[in-house]
Amino acid sequence: MSHEEAGASSPHAKIVRMANQIGAFFRSKPHDEGVAGVAEHINKFWEPRMRRQLFEVVDSGGTGLAPLVLEASSVIRRPTAEQERTPPA
């Protein structure tokens, strides 16, 4: 089963919600620090699958994402497909 089949609207809604929560915390920071903070947090704590779902939203126009998150997305690490699919060494 591929990930795409399961990726209906609800997982994306949850990802958007979680990203916006992070964005909301960093909103009270100076702007640049806030952008960097959101990106660093997501890079440090989000597994590639979650980041991929985030980029699916970003790439399709970023509907629902807070402006701070959208701005941070340029600094968030984009996961590669191999990372998820490689069998164990």
């Binding site: 089949e5 399961a6 997982p11 597994e47 699958r49 996961p79």
Partner: peptide, 16 residues
């Protein structure tokens, strides 16, 4: 890369 947290594991399980 960081791994999945418990709630993320469950989400990923539901998503397959």
């Amino acid at each position: 890369e960081p791994g999945l947290r418990i709630p993320n594991m469950l989400d990923a399980a539901v998503q397959g």
